[in-house]
Amino acid sequence: MSLKQRFRTSMKKVNGDLLTPISIFQRLQGKRKFLLESSAKYEGNGRYSFIGVNPRKTYSGIDQKLRDFSHLTQKEYFYEGELVQLLKQVMPRVSSHTEYPFTGGGIGYMHALPNTVPTLQFHVYDTLIIFDHLTEEIAVFHTNIEAEQVEPNIDELIHELFSTPTPAETSYTLSSFEKQSGSTYSAVFSGDAFALYRNLRVQFASAYMYYVEFDECTLIGTSPSSYIQIRDGALSTMNHEINIERFCQQETIEKAQHQQQGQLTSSFHAIDVVKELQPPHGLIGYIGFNGQVDFTAPTNMMTIIGQVAHIQTLHSDTSPSFSSLMKG
């Protein structure tokens, strides 16, 4: 076990070979949990899984109004304007350089869900659990984003992960599938949403898989690739329809069969690029405290609101295969 402390951050690593991202998620106690993981282990984006619970804040927006809600103080503030631009202004920023691509920040979506929920929503997590599939290490990373904030006890959290019994198996049911429009479907849902996610991640295993609990809904899905990723000032995308020349230094642009990338010019902030490039079908992913971002498109996604599962797929020929998830 090792502990490293920097200005406003602290991290502890432990051997995690007795745990998995799924078991870590199940043992965490609290609300508004999330899990980001990948089926492509040991390479690139698939090396790490990220798990969190009890976010510090939630930013949610509809039309031209962004709500800033503190889960600690129960206070809320409202801002008027373009939602993504407002998100850029309120998102905490902490400069940090670590071996991990994401060590805390906002987890959420932009314009990807039914009209009954906010069009933009991000939970802000200051404490993050990172599972390294290559070394089988667990890193617990905390970022102090408010001067008066009391530091969490990382040792207690690690003890919780190893000592809490894994919950009993749960189940779910999907029934009465109906086509709504295009590649959008609905179904009657009952049971445990995480049990549905566990089935989804097996039958639709992909490079990007996610489970995020919001107050209005639970969002689960899989996607084969990143739509837009910015790390250390470098923009990369698997989508060749994106014109990266608008944002990158021309001499740094590289294009291959499956990817194009380049170094951002100094005039662009990562969130500015996301705002310009977000597609009509929306994005799901993270915005780090350090300004790094990674978003995927809702290729196979379910939004569970009460007893209804809203199903969205960007490939209409794959939608009938959702019938394999009817019961689990």
Rank of each mutant, 00 (worst) to 15 (best):
residue 209 M to I: 08
residue 209 M to C: 02
residue 211 Y to A: 10
residue 212 V to I: 10
residue 217 C to L: 12
residue 217 C to K: 09
residue 218 T to W: 03
residue 219 L to N: 05
residue 219 L to H: 03
residue 222 T to I: 04
residue 222 T to M: 06
residue 223 S to V: 12
residue 224 P to I: 14
residue 224 P to D: 15
residue 224 P to A: 07
residue 226 S to Y: 09
residue 227 Y to W: 09
residue 229 Q to G: 01
residue 230 I to M: 01
residue 230 I to Q: 08
residue 232 D to E: 15
residue 234 A to S: 02
residue 234 A to Y: 03
residue 235 L to Q: 03
residue 236 S to F: 10
residue 238 M to T: 11
residue 238 M to Q: 12
residue 239 N to D: 15
residue 241 E to I: 06
residue 241 E to Y: 09
residue 244 I to H: 06
residue 248 C to R: 11
residue 249 Q to D: 11
residue 251 E to P: 02
residue 252 T to G: 11
residue 252 T to W: 11
residue 252 T to Y: 10
residue 253 I to N: 01
residue 253 I to M: 04
residue 253 I to F: 05
residue 254 E to P: 00
residue 255 K to Q: 15
residue 255 K to I: 14
residue 258 H to Y: 10
residue 259 Q to K: 15
residue 259 Q to D: 05
residue 260 Q to V: 10
residue 261 Q to A: 14
residue 262 G to P: 01
residue 263 Q to V: 13
residue 264 L to T: 00
residue 264 L to D: 06
residue 264 L to R: 01
residue 264 L to M: 02
residue 265 T to N: 03
residue 265 T to E: 12
residue 266 S to V: 11
residue 267 S to Q: 15
residue 267 S to H: 04
residue 268 F to S: 10
residue 269 H to E: 12
residue 272 D to R: 02
residue 272 D to F: 05
residue 272 D to T: 09
residue 273 V to F: 06
residue 274 V to R: 06
residue 275 K to D: 15
residue 279 P to F: 13
residue 280 P to E: 11
residue 280 P to D: 08
residue 281 H to W: 12
residue 282 G to P: 05
residue 284 I to C: 00
residue 284 I to T: 06
residue 284 I to Q: 02
residue 284 I to F: 07
residue 284 I to H: 03
residue 285 G to H: 03
residue 288 G to I: 06
residue 293 V to W: 04
residue 293 V to F: 05
residue 297 A to W: 04
residue 299 T to A: 14
residue 300 N to K: 07
residue 301 M to P: 08
residue 301 M to D: 01
residue 301 M to S: 09
residue 302 M to D: 05
residue 302 M to I: 10
residue 304 I to D: 04
residue 304 I to F: 04
residue 304 I to Y: 00
residue 305 I to S: 06
residue 305 I to P: 01
residue 308 V to L: 03
